[in-house]
Amino acid sequence: MVTPESIRANIAQGMATDHLAVTGDGTHFDAVVVSEAFAGKSRVQRHQLVYQTLGERMRGEIHALSMKTYTPDEWQKQIQ
């Protein structure tokens, strides 16, 4: 069974993050990913970076993943 923790671990192994939170019910998941790697990238490019960390899991195990992706500066503005 896919868990939020296993998705979080995959993302954390695949890219440096300043903040990473994953929630979900085993089928549908939501992620908030904050990384300097997103600087200068479009929303689609940011999502592609996260999808790369999950690899084949996105084609089978994970049925739906909603993401919010931020640079550290963008994240600071969100949480103020």
Rank of each mutant, 00 (worst) to 15 (best):
Q45L: 01
A16W: 01
A31E: 04
T69C: 15
R57Y: 08
F29Y: 14
G60R: 09
T23C: 03
V44N: 03
I79E: 13
V22K: 03
M58N: 03
K41P: 08
D25L: 01
G40V: 00
Q45R: 05
L20P: 00
Q45E: 11
G14H: 02
K68T: 06
A12H: 07
Q80I: 05
T17W: 12
H47G: 05
W75A: 12
Q80S: 15
A12K: 11
Q52V: 10
E36C: 09
S35Y: 05
K77C: 06
G40D: 00
Q48M: 14
R8W: 09
A31T: 03
Y70S: 02
T23W: 01
L65C: 07
M1Y: 02
R43L: 11
G24A: 15
V34I: 15
R59S: 05
T23Q: 10
Q80R: 14
E36V: 14
S42I: 11
H63D: 06
I62A: 13
M15H: 06
E36N: 14
I11Y: 04
Q45I: 00
V44H: 02
L20W: 02
E5L: 13
K77R: 13
H47I: 02
Y70A: 01
K68G: 00
K77H: 15
G26L: 04
F29T: 11
L65Y: 02
H63P: 04
A31N: 04
L20E: 05
R46L: 01
G14V: 10
R43N: 10
S42C: 07
T27G: 03
G55M: 11
T71E: 04
A12P: 00
E61D: 15
S42G: 10
P4H: 06
N10K: 10
V32C: 09
K68Q: 12
